[in-house]
């Protein structure tokens, strides 16, 4: 086991925290003993109470991630293969790109309210740009000679896209999507916090404000595990999709 010493360290840290809280070195008002948090966590897990908030956050992440990725890939590809499209959209993209998408949550709340529509829109916005820029870079990086060869063989645009351009750009697209996945989680949690309706982000903030700290830490653990899982699944999928790349 490559990770075992590090996991041992983690176990020791948790054990020390338990001891430190018991011995009064850390105030219980700040950090309940890890065992108490674990109890609450077990209760949430065994009663299935954790599922609805988890699913509601997951829904935002997935919907925004797929919408944003689709827009990013489509627009990035169009800008990559057509100079006219590039000239048309490049200034607009450069104008919108530096806007911090988190700052767009307040105006989005004014127009779309505090429901899923607002949250999915904000996640979509933050996902789109890294995917778009990476797709553009990948599509533009396709070997000229290969494109000429495709033309020589009489490949149409659709065929060239599907069998040459998109596969060649895939490593870039996936790298952009990997960045965007993290950002999607951030925006989902943030918009849940600001809109205050439900989901993991809302619960973590709400539990802190009502001083239910064991609950807060338990939900935080659930969110962290979700983040870890989504990341690992994506890395796995990425490696499988790019099996032909040397690693």
């Amino acid at each position: 086991m490559r990770h075992s010493p590090g996991i041992l360290v983690l176990v020791l840290v948790i054990g020390f925290l338990e001891f430190a809280v018991d011995a009064g070195m850390i105030r219980r008002a700040l950090l309940p003993p890890p065992s108490a948090t674990a109890e609450v966590l077990w209760e949430l897990l065994s009663t299935g109470e954790f599922l609805p908030p988890l699913l509601s956050t997951l829904k935002l992440v997935f919907a925004g991630f797929f919408l944003g990725s689709a827009i990013g890939v489509a627009l990035g590809t169009a800008m990559g293969i057509s100079p006219a499209m590039f000239r048309l959209f490049e200034p607009l993209v450069e104008l919108i790109r530096p806007i911090p998408k988190s700052a767009l949550v307040p105006p989005l709340m004014l127009f779309l309210g505090i429901d899923d529509a607002m949250k999915i829109t904000s996640v979509t916005l933050v996902v789109t740009f890294p995917v778009l820029l990476n797709t553009l870079q990948g599509v533009r990086g396709v070997d000229r000679v290969m494109l000429d060869a495709a033309r020589t063989h009489g490949w149409g645009l659709g065929h060239t896209l599907r069998h040459m351009i998109l596969p060649a750009a895939l490593p870039f697209i996936l790298a952009g999507m990997r960045v965007s996945l993290g950002l999607a989680m951030v925006l989902a949690v943030l918009s849940e916090m600001l809109a205050g309706q439900g989901g993991l982000g809302f619960l973590i903030l709400d539990m802190q404000r009502s001083f239910q700290l064991r609950q807060m830490y338990a939900w935080l653990v659930i969110l962290a595990v979700l983040g870890l899982l989504l990341n690992s699944i994506f890395l796995l999928a990425e490696r499988r999709a790019l099996f032909w790349q040397r690693r």
Partner: peptide
């Protein structure tokens, strides 16, 4: 020793660590 701890912290979405840090 510390790698796993770092890897565990990395995927937590930043806004979520604000409430405990406030405490």
């Amino acid at each position: 020793l510390l790698g796993p701890a770092v890897e565990l912290l990395r995927p937590i979405p930043v806004p979520a660590i604000i409430p405990p840090l406030v405490l």
